[in-house]
Nucleic acid binder design. Structure first.
Length: 282
DNA sequence: GTTACATTCCGTCATTGGCC
DNA sequence: GGCCAATGACGGAATGTAAC
């Protein structure tokens, strides 16, 4: 433990609220702090016979500390739960979150309407792809719902309106080029993390030049990072929740052990008195 | 009211270990 | 070896609190 626990909030998670402290006294676990001992670690004496580490060694220890991690909160708490049975609620796997993500995936709109009133089909680039914060990568193609004329898209752009899964309207500025046949070229609409929510960018597909390839790979990388960020955000939330639960559990154990200690001290005291009294009478 | 400081919460990145 | 979940570390935003 590094002692840097910053989650001191009192808003207890619902699952931990059901913890039963009375069962905690049955088993005493040893939570191993790492590292407990570092082999071959040079030390100095402080003049009083105590061994003191030098400053340079602290860096090494820190590194070792980083390298040798303690088991996860989930493992520790689940271990506590299994040993102490009904005392502590197990940290559950999060099935609901997966379901939530799935529901986001299905909110990709099918059609958009240009500022001139044409309807354009929006097909998800990959329906199975994880979408983040309501942002999605979608490919816009002409659905053949009437010819889109150049007049409808002055200066090579158009405002695209689409309806999200929740019914809210979104407007997107999209650069559009028209083929000689009057068809709209395929574009991808995306939302990089640098843009505020609700604002998306559009980039063309059918890339040929090396620069475009580089841009495309950068875009893919950005999308991948976005997905990772989303997942990690969720993971961090869960991790903090578990950490809170774990700390709460430890605090409860401390309280129980303190009480136990008090009781034992009292017991020892009374036994001593009894012994002394008996010795006097003899 | 406002300022300064502390605390809490949250998102992000880096890193690790386990699994395939 | 790559992928992924878990977690530590860090920084910024939001909120609380005490002193003025």
């Amino acid at each position: 433990m590094d002692g840097s626990i910053d989650d001191k909030s009192e808003d207890s998670p619902s699952s931990s609220g059901s913890s039963q402290p009375q069962n905690l006294s049955t088993v005493v676990h040893t939570i191993t702090a790492v590292p407990t001992a570092i082999p071959n670690q040079p030390v100095e004496e402080d003049g009083e016979g105590h061994l003191v580490r030098t400053d340079t060694d602290i860096g090494i220890e820190k590194r070792r500390e980083i390298l040798s991690r303690r088991p996860s909160y989930r493992k520790i708490l689940n271990e506590l739960s299994s040993a102490e049975a009904p005392g502590i609620a197990k940290i559950e796997e999060d099935k609901e979150e997966e379901a939530a993500i799935t529901s986001i995936q299905t909110t990709i709109p099918s059609y958009v309407q240009t500022s001139a009133g044409q309807t354009i089909q929006i097909a998800a680039a990959n329906q199975n792809e994880l979408t983040t914060q309501g942002l999605q990568t979608i490919t816009m193609t002409n659905a053949g719902q009437g010819a889109v004329t150049a007049a409808a898209m002055p200066a090579g752009t158009t405002i695209v309106q689409y309806t999200q899964g929740d019914g809210s309207q979104q407007f997107v500025t999209v650069p559009v080029s028209i083929s000689p046949a009057g068809e709209v070229q395929a574009y991808q609409i995306r939302a990089p993390s640098s843009l505020p929510a609700g604002v998306v960018m559009a980039t063309p597909t059918g890339i040929t030049s090396p620069q475009q390839l580089a841009e495309e790979s950068a875009r893919k990388r950005e999308l991948r990072l976005m997905k990772n960020r989303y997942k990690n955000r969720e993971a961090a939330r869960e991790c903090r929740r578990r950490k809170k639960e774990y700390v709460k559990c430890l605090e409860t154990r401390v309280a129980v052990l303190e009480q136990q200690n008090k009781t034992l001290i009292e017991e020892l005291k009374s036994l001593k008195e009894l012994y002394c009294h008996k010795a006097e009478t003899e």
